[in-house]
Amino acid sequence: MMKGSNLPFNGTTEQEAQLRQKLNELRSKDGALMPAMQFAQELYGYLPYEVQLIISEELGVSLSDVYGVATFYSQFSLYPKGKYRIGICLGTACYVKGSQDIYDRLQQLLGIKSGECTADRLFSLDATRCVGCCGMSPVMTVNDDVYGRIKPDDVEGILAKYRERG
């Protein structure tokens, strides 16, 4: 089974035109791969197969090289980000306070693993390092909202709030 997102690619023709134009500019330059991939990551929010293939063909770099770079650096993602990006801190303080249980509950309720995105593209999940508010541990973030001192049973209600908003 192929690694990476199994959500259908829904890039627009405008995005593709923008990407190809950028690749055109970069093509003759040395070390074009990183800036090209950074541009594409910014443009699409992630680097799916379809996008990596365009980069590979336009720059004349093998797909295995593109994928190798994409999976080496954590700044690149193979999965799209949801409308609501959930972060769960697995840093020392939060972990001691049981954030693993919250993380497990999130994975169970959303049906995805860290780095992935739900099929409706509403939620994506990332296990993070310390977010800087250990006093509130265990901490979960949804976009810019911070939830502190939560228990696994709180998770369902928090998710429901965002589901209602759509």
Binding site: S62, L63, S64, D65, Y67, G68, T71, F72
Partner: peptide, 10 residues
């Protein structure tokens, strides 16, 4: 000049 395989992840 094929490049079918590479190094993945870290």
């Amino acid at each position: 000049g094929v490049g079918a395989i590479g190094v993945n992840e870290r």
